[in-house]
Design a protein around this nucleic acid. Structure first.
Length: 952
RNA sequence: GCGCGGGUGCCGGAGUGGUCAAACGGGCUAGGCUUAGGACCUAGUAGCUUAGUGCUUACGCAGGUUCGAACCCUGUCCCGCGCACCA
């Protein structure tokens, strides 16, 4: 049994010592530059992080063996709020976070005192970064990755920040950067915009922003302001709802007086409105009064306790035709003179309020969907909240998709609901009869307990993807890229079409400051779209100790774009001209990026932005060439998560299975875009399989002899497998490639060795090819075997085996198959006939005419498949009966048609050669005879390459 | 809701018009090896049938095109993912 741990360590050390994976500019070699998004700093790495990097490694090792100059680099991302959040939590004594990080640190630091000290130091975000990065590098390296670590950096390093500054200057010059107002989720306690991970339960129950239309109904010197999501129902408004138990406030809003809930007034102050509270107005005091309708006439104010002061304005405009709540609330009043009396309302007036039909849709052809659905669902009271919710949703969805406005809607009559919604609010907004208000989709709090609401940020910086020409460039870039699998191309196109303005800076988080407005930090997705360029020069930046100050925009202009005067630049930033030229040459050699490999969740954000960034800042020749996608990772059939306890860390992985087993399992268990389901029992199996493969190959290594192999079929099949593996690799079909090296070659070997008198010759031919083909998948085992077999140097940089088309021998393969079929047929017959010990096997070879018939038949069916026509054209008077029955049966079961049609003589000769082998397998005499000469009744059923058999 | 992708055996998944009862792997069953277990090897794994190369039913469901469909077309049901300030 092999010791995977020591083998793994041994070869990783040697690779490192020999600098095997350090990539150097070499104009004589074709380069291959492949990347995967840099990982974000987190506690510890698990197999989810390992998929992309491992697949890239397997793939790039193949290209290295194909003679390409491969650059596979990696860096680290630290921008944004997460790292900052951790250090803040630790500084604030957050017990949960501290414990969590102690746990992470314990994996590396044995001494508990030291653990405490390290975690305490994490109040400085850089301490987190500096602690984890070397660990992450080690863990990644333990997978056997051929990464050139000299080119590593973090997004917080000067070189990265200077690049991002250069990039944003370019954006600004091109007019891709604009400023404006923008609604964001905002925490009142943090006094800052918040993202999903700042919100309590934000990841499991996401908070969205909802855009309400505020409708202003004149009431005395003020407006009663009601919020609605459906401006399209404007013409169906019959009354206003207020909550009689709520005390509203009259506030001055930008010169107008509005009556809204107190909570709403507070929220409005965050939404770019100047608010001053004038006085209180009790809900009950409004009952029975009227306000001016937006369309014409007046609306009466009625009570409805369902109006929540915490939602929108706390006032609701009633549309009983379409809104089930409104319909029910109105009906309740109309059905009860007592209730009206209680609120001091005139029953007759209330009774007279008529539902106004406004929309026909699949929900109602007459315009009374609320009434109809309430009756259908047997809703009879406002207490049935669940049903009411459901009914509301149902009506809305039907009306939104199928609704048309009726005659009652004036000039909007005949318009679709979807369209009317937009047009009505635009028109009313022009007349200043409505305003916009943003509300959260649910009540939410930031992790420190502050309320989340929607605030409007002024002077927010946006990337304007619709800026002149940008999209055209990006689409151009996309069009010339390979997307693997190509089904994602459409998705890119859709995302590109939909991208509009995107906020690109935040007020908090780690990252690069916007050079021309330094209170803003460039947001962490926007700052990581061009960093791959740095991989091409980072080794030299370090070698020549170039500082952040020296990396001015002019520096990047020259290094990337060869723009400007080198001499002048050299003087200005004090970097030798020769160094600048060297940097440029390195960039020009490695760029563009040949491939980027990641998972589909990056499509709509990172990858799209990456394309836009390249399209914006670089000429066509430096645009990325290919994007490939891998699938997601599950563990024991579930998404990996701490709470489920199914996270498999790379440390564990190395301890229990080792890199090669993981790599083989990963590549073989699913296709590249399929989901990898980690199941330890299956990984264990793979480990065992590799063990026995290793044992077998190690034995072969010691027993090899040059010579000629008689088994042409074997050689032909192995050559075909070499070609298949090569083609699969080129298509990044890692599963099919791994099938070849893990199983198919093994099967062919076992098949051949049974018939082989001189296995050492077989080994000589197969060993070196097999080990080389195994190397990308299981590099550690392959290196060990390579040295066991006495081969020179590293297999990691050996040449990939060449496929020799001249050794493909279809006839030999076919004959071999005929032979194997014959053996298994005999065995089957023996079983069925219950013959204990064979005395004789009679092999009756088909009559000669059948061979020529089969030849013509094969040719004929290339064009004609109709049995009747075939029979006529192939008829031969001497064998009419047989032909008539043979043709339909061959058509039905085409597996009976031999791949290669031999002649009777050839088949005879081949079987004669194999007779001794057959006799040995059966342990008895084997007699060959031609059907024409046979006395057996079975003789007639023999077909070319499928002899009739008689056993005794 | 909009957009995209997908539904194949006990499972993961190949297969996109004929050599498919379906690659490869796993599981399961039987046998071998072994002190035992593990590992490994052999055979079987839709049903029926048989001294073999045979029949029937299958690729979400319902239709259609074709000599022929898992594969093409139409309808339908179900599932997954994305929908922005978040890495």
């Amino acid at each position: 049994m092999s010791d995977f741990r020591s083998i793994q360590e041994k070869w990783q050390k040697k690779w490192k010592a020999e600098k095997l994976f350090e990539a150097h500019v070499d104009g004589k070699k074709e380069k291959f530059f492949i990347t995967t998004p840099y990982p974000y700093i987190s506690g510890s790495l698990h197999i989810g992080h390992a998929r992309a990097v491992t697949e890239v490694d397997v793939y790039s090792r193949f290209f290295r063996m194909q003679g390409k100059n491969v650059l596979y680099p990696m860096a680290f991302h630290i921008s944004g709020t997460p790292v900052l959040g951790i250090s803040l939590a630790i500084e604030n004594g957050d017990k949960e976070k501290i414990e969590q990080y102690k746990e992470y640190v314990r994996a590396y630091v044995p001494n508990e005192k030291e653990v405490e000290r390290v975690v305490a130091s994490f109040s400085d975000p850089w301490a987190i970064v500096n602690f984890f990065i070397p660990k992450m590098q080690d863990e990644y390296s333990s997978l056997g990755l051929g990464v050139d670590w000299r080119r590593s950096f973090t997004s917080g390093d000067a070189v990265h920040q200077k690049l991002v500054e250069w990039q944003f200057h370019k954006y600004k010059e091109k007019g891709y950067l604009v400023q404006g107002k923008y609604p964001v989720l905002y925490s009142t306690s943090l006094k800052n915009p918040v993202g999903e991970d700042d919100i309590a339960d934000g990841d499991t129950n996401p908070v969205e922003k909802k855009e309400f239309t505020l409708m202003k109904f004149a009431y005395g010197d003020a407006f009663l302001v009601a919020a609605t999501l459906r401006p399209d129902t404007l013409f169906g408004q019959t009354n206003l709802w207020v909550n009689p138990d709520v005390v509203y406030v009259k506030v001055s809003v930008d010169g107008e007086k509005w009556i809204v809930s107190r909570e709403c007034a507070e929220k409005l102050s965050y939404q770019d409105k100047k608010i001053k509270i004038i006085n209180e107005v009790s809900g009950s005091s409004l009952l029975g009064k009227t306000c001016k309708a937006i369309t014409k006439g007046e609306l009466i104010i009625l009570p409805f306790k369902g109006c929540k002061p915490s939602v929108a304005t706390g006032l609701v405009v009633s549309v009983p035709s379409s809104a089930v709540y409104d319909y029910m609330a109105l009906k309740e009043l109309q059905d009860s003179p007592a209730l009206c009396k209680k609120y001091g309302l005139n029953y007759e007036t209330v009774k007279k309020i008529a539902v106004i039909p406004i929309i026909t849709s699949t929900a109602s052809s007459t315009g009374y969907p609320a009434k109809e659905i309430a009756e259908k669902m047997k809703i009879h009271s406002l207490q049935q909240e669940k049903l009411l919710e459901e009914a509301t949703k149902e009506v809305y969805s039907q009306e939104f998709h199928t609704g048309k406005l009726m005659k009652s809607c004036g000039k909007y009559a005949g318009m679709s609901v979807e369209k009317a919604q937009k047009e009505i609010s635009v028109a009313l907004s022009k007349e200043k009869k409505v305003d916009v208000f943003y509300e959260t989709s649910r009540r939410a709090f930031s992790r420190d307990g502050g309320e989340i609401l929607v605030a409007i940020v002024d002077n927010q910086w946006f990337l304007d993807f619709n800026a002149k020409g940008w999209k055209t460039l990006a689409n151009d870039c996309l069009k010339n890229m390979d997307i693997l699998p190509d089904k994602y191309r459409k998705q890119f196109e859709d995302v590109f079409a939909w991208l509009d303005k995107r906020p690109c800076a935040r007020l908090r988080g780690l990252g690069t400051k916007l050079p021309f407005d330094t209170k803003w930090v460039i947001e962490s997705l926007s700052d990581s779209t061009l960093y791959m360029t740095l991989y091409t020069i980072q080794d030299k930046i370090q070698k020549y100790k170039i500082t952040g100050e020296q990396m001015s925009p002019a520096f990047f202009d020259y290094v990337f774009l060869e723009k400007g005067n080198v001499e002048a630049l050299s003087q200005e930033i004090k970097v030798k001209k020769a160094v600048l030229v060297e940097l440029h040459d390195a960039f020009a050699y490695w760029y563009p990026m040949d491939q980027r490999h990641t998972f589909p969740p990056h499509l709509a954000n990172h990858l799209s932005f990456m394309i836009f960034a390249h399209a914006a800042c670089f000429p066509r020749k430096y645009w990325p060439k290919k994007i490939s996608f891998h699938g997601l990772i599950m563990s024991d059939g579930l998404k990996m998560s701490k709470s489920k306890g199914n996270v498999v860390t790379l440390k564990q992985l190395n301890k229990d299975y080792g890199a090669d087993s993981f790599r083989a399992f990963l590549c073989n268990s699913t296709s590249i875009d399929g989901m990898m389901n980690w199941q330890s029992s299956e990984v264990e199996r793979m480990k065992n399989h590799l063990d026995s493969l290793f044992t077998l190959l190690a034995a072969m290594a010691k027993n090899k002899k040059n010579g000629t192999i008689a088994n042409k079929a074997f050689v032909s099949r192995v050559e075909a497998l070499i070609e298949r593996a090569t083609l699969s690799f080129k298509a990044m079909n890692l599963r099919d490639y791994s099938n070849v090296v893990l199983y198919d070659l093994l099967r062919e070997y076992q098949r051949a060795v049974k018939k082989e008198k001189n296995p050492a010759v077989l080994h000589h031919y197969l060993f070196s090819k097999w080990v080389r083909m195994l190397a990308p998948l299981c590099p550690h085992y392959a290196e060990e075997l390579w040295s066991l077999g006495g081969e020179k140097g590293f297999v990691s940089i050996a040449a990939w085996p060449e496929f020799d088309a001249g050794l493909i021998d279809i006839k030999a393969e076919f004959e071999d198959e005929v032979l194997e079929n014959l053996v298994s047929d005999v065995q089957e017959i023996q079983k069925l006939a219950r013959v204990e010990r064979l005395k004789e096997v009679k092999v009756i070879i088909a009559a000669s005419w059948k061979y020529s018939f089969m030849k013509s038949f094969k040719k004929a069916i290339e064009k004609e498949r109709n049995a009747g026509v075939l029979i006529k054209s192939l008829m031969d008077a001497a064998h009419s009966k047989e032909i008539a029955s043979l043709i339909p049966s061959l058509l039905k079961n085409q597996s009976k048609i031999p791949l290669v049609v031999l002649t009777q003589k050839e088949e005879f000769a081949f079987l004669e050669v194999q007779r001794s082998y057959l006799e040995k397998s059966f342990g008895c005499r084997v007699v060959l005879e031609a059907a024409e000469k046979s006395k057996e009744s079975k003789a007639g059923s023999a077909l070319p390459s499928r002899a009739a058999l008689v056993v005794s």
